[in-house]
C-alpha cells in the first residue's frame, strides 16, 4: 500500500467487525492477504467474534430449515478451487524471490463473502492498482445496482473504484453468471450522457473478475450491459448493472 502504510495494519479489528466503510474495506481487502501480520489478526479476531456470535444463539423459526433446504435444492454449487491455483505461504515466499514476473501474470484475489482465496503471484497486480486509485484524494467507490436480480441473489456484485484525476479505475466483480454463448458483458463509463465503451468483461468460470482500466473522463454513471462477444461501440443490450455517481 502506498498512502496509509502505517494506518492500514491497525484496521484488522475494525475489518473483522465489519466496521470499515466501503472504501477502507476494499483497501484492506487488497492489502491483508499479502501481509502476514494482518492475516493473522483477521483470522484470530474472526475466531474470537464467532464465539461472541455463538453466544447470541437463539432457536430458529421451525419453517426456516424447510425454506433453506428447498432453495439449496435449486442452487448450483461452485466448483472447488484447484490446489495448484491456491497459493500457500511458503509457495508465495518462493515466488516472491522469483521477482515480479509471476506477480505481473494476472494475479487475482478473490473475496468471497469474507473468505479469501489467493491465486497467482504476490502481490496481485490489481491490488496495487486499487491501492493507487484509493490513495487519490478524489477516489470513489460505487457498488452498481443490479436491480431485481440482486433480490434473486443470482446477479453477482459489481463494484468500481476510480479516480478521475488519477485517470484510473478498477472493477471488482464477483458471482457474475456466465454470459450466454456468443455474448459478453461490456462495461460503460457514462459521462455527459454519452456511454463510452470501456471493456468487454470476461468473467472466469467462477464469476470473478478484476480489471484495471484507464479512464479519460469523469463518470456520471457506470453501467454493464450484455453485448455480442466482440463488444459494441454503443450499448445495445439490457442494462444489467447501473450505478450513478
Amino acid at each position: 500500500m502506498s498512502s496509509n502504510d502505517i494506518d492500514i495494519h491497525h484496521l484488522g479489528a475494525a475489518y473483522a467487525l465489519d466496521a470499515l466503510d466501503e472504501r477502507e474495506r476494499m483497501a484492506f481487502e487488497a492489502h491483508y492477504p499479502s501481509c502476514e501480520v494482518c492475516r493473522a489478526d483477521v483470522l484470530a479476531f474472526r475466531a474470537t467474534l464467532s464465539q461472541v456470535a455463538a453466544a447470541q444463539s437463539i432457536l430458529p423459526s421451525p419453517t426456516l430449515k424447510g425454506r433453506v433446504m428447498a432453495e439449496i435444492a435449486q442452487t448450483r454449487q461452485l466448483s472447488p478451487l484447484l490446489p495448484d491455483r491456491v497459493t500457500d505461504l511458503a509457495e508465495r515466499r518462493r515466488r516472491r524471490t522469483m521477482g515480479g514476473f509471476l506477480a505481473a501474470a494476472a494475479a487475482v484475489v478473490l473475496v468471497i463473502s469474507g473468505a479469501l482465496v489467493l491465486r497467482g503471484g504476490d502481490p496481485p497486480a490489481y491490488a496495487e492498482a486499487l491501492a493507487e486509485v484509493l490513495g487519490q484524494p478524489d477516489a470513489r467507490v460505487l457498488t452498481l445496482d443490479a436491480g431485481d436480480r440482486r433480490a434473486a441473489g443470482d446477479g453477482g456484485v459489481v463494484k468500481v473504484a476510480w479516480s478521475s484525476t488519477g485517470r484510473m479505475a478498477v472493477l471488482v466483480a464477483d458471482g457474475l453468471p456466465t454470459a450466454p454463448d456468443g455474448a459478453a458483458y461490456e462495461l460503460w463509463l457514462i459521462a455527459d450522457g454519452e456511454p463510452q465503451p470501456m471493456n468487454v468483461l470476461e468473467a472466469a468460470a467462477d464469476g470473478e473478475l478484476r480489471v484495471v482500466l484507464d479512464i479519460d473522463d469523469s463518470p456520471d454513471s457506470w453501467g454493464v450491459t450484455i453485448e455480442p462477444a466482440d463488444g459494441s461501440p454503443a450499448p445495445t443490450g439490457e442494462i444489467l448493472f447501473l450505478g450513478t455517481v
Binding site: 439449496i72 448450483r76 472447488p80 491456491v86 441473489g153
Partner: peptide, 12 residues
Amino acid sequence: FVELWRLAARYD
C-alpha cells in the same frame, strides 16, 4: 445458508 451451500467446496 444458501451462500454456505454455494461456496461449500471452496472452504479452506
